[in-house]
Design a protein around this nucleic acid. Structure first.
Lengths: 263, 263
DNA sequence: CAGTGGTCTAGACCACTCC
DNA sequence: GAGTGGTCTAGACCACTGG
């Protein structure tokens, strides 16, 4: 089943046999492998291949798209670099998923000053629905009238409350999300989002500041008011660079630090 | 001048003509392009090609190493991804340098909450030489008896003091470094290190925490004691993952934030 | 125009995984 | 052994830069 074969335009070369191309005008130039990358991404986004599943082999994709294996390979190379897929030699190429050790620490950068990460635990403080506040609506690119799911939770490590987080999610996407489901679910929250709501977080931006704990934060984290905290404001994006999460975290950095690599 | 041709071991393949290989036992397996990557990196490290200069073309390197252009290309691809070199289509491949707009913001992640980055200014508070404190020695992988250069400075944006930084550098490498040279130098500090001391920062790790301004920080940054500050502890590495800088920064995040991308 | 990096092909063989 | 990703080659042509 190769369904509809889109119009690939080869503005590259062709050693011998010409590559596929229904051709015509090509208003926008881009390498073949980029076009193929887009096609594969669309299949990922549409759920044709689900997180954790294997995508077709390079040879098969090459046949389907009527290009050489090397060209497919280069497309997948980039998808792999963007963490959309994971290659496993001898096995195949798999759709990336948040249900993995690997992917966990891509989004949780707070690590203990010494020792290994340890016994995380979540306590859901509050889950409710409300109309998107102006700033949230702007960030999530929705209307102010639209509903959003608001979540407040405290994350502990080894029993010590360490992170106080507030999340805003588009209500349209996260319809059946309740405190119960959040509590019942084992594993990372993004795993829940991915399997239960079909929304995979691809990348995120964070803005970090230092501020003093207010009364509520102090109470929930079990610290003195005024204690310095790391404020981490995250906007997460899914396919197509669509923002689907706003998250404000307050990190207690007495025994932990936010780890970052500059390269 | 191809000087000494090292022993390349091809554990890959060879469609027709065999690639170079004095061969023999190969205790450690690695792809040809990785071996070539190492060779190129050594040339970069040794200063055979200096920052900003063009390295030999892919075709020439392929000839020198007796491999195909595609293999050299893959090696350079990775070096480019690691920001060791910069490719410019039609021109050539150049040794990366800190004297560029491009490279500036790789290591300065503090950006204004709104508007563009603006009029940075440095004030050197202190430069002195001392024996490496235990922790500094450990971090920089030198002996406690060894001398280190200590620098304290304040960075302002649009006239507002924003960053208070303390740096420790191995005295052996930064011999003639004085407050004068730091003050006289136009452009990024890492540019100075690169051209004057032959030490290029390749990558760095940062540990971020929140803390309260002490009396000294408050005075130098013109804020009230107790104001929350971002503490950014950076260790920078040069070729061979050798640590060559320890830097502790206190960032005022009233009008700025530390920006990070999770991908 | 020549020279550079960038794309693409076709085919071969290697390394790894699983049956 | 069959199937997968990973490496390598040889050669062609494109896109871009600069003289």
């Amino acid at each position: 089943m190769s369904s509809v074969l889109p119009n690939l335009v080869n503005n590259g070369t062709s050693a011998a046999g010409g590559a596929a191309s229904v051709a015509g005008a090509s208003p926008t130039f881009s390498p073949l492998y980029q076009q193929i990358k887009v096609l594969i991404t669309q299949s990922l986004q549409s759920g044709e291949w689900k997180p954790g599943e294997m995508i077709p082999s390079e040879v098969e994709l090459a046949g389907r798209f009527k290009v050489s294996q090397g060209t497919v390979r280069k497309a997948i190379d980039e998808l792999s670099a963007e963490n959309l897929v994971v290659r496993r030699q001898g096995k195949g190429t798999f759709v990336a998923t948040h249900h993995e050790e690997r992917a966990q620490f891509r989004f949780l950068r707070l690590v203990p000053d010494e020792g290994e990460p340890h016994n995380p635990a979540n306590k859901i403080i509050e889950v409710k629905r409300l109309r998107a506040p102006a700033e949230v609506a702007r960030t999530l690119d929705i209307k102010s009238a639209d509903s959003v799911v608001f979540i407040k939770r405290v994350q502990s490590f080894d029993g010590a409350p360490t992170i106080l987080e507030e999340l805003w999610l588009p209500g349209a996407i996260f319809k059946g999300l309740t405190a119960e489901r959040l509590n019942d679910y084992k594993g990372p929250m993004y795993g829940l989002f991915e399997t239960e709501f079909g929304t995979r977080m691809i990348r995120a931006t964070e803005a970090i500041r230092a501020l003093s704990a207010d009364a509520e934060a102090a109470q929930l984290l079990g610290i003195a008011p005024g204690t310095p905290l790391l404020s981490v404001e995250r906007v997460s994006f899914t396919y197509g660079d669509k923002p689907v999460e706003l998250r404000r975290g307050l990190y207690l950095t007495a025994q932990h630090h936010y780890q970052n690599e500059l390269s």
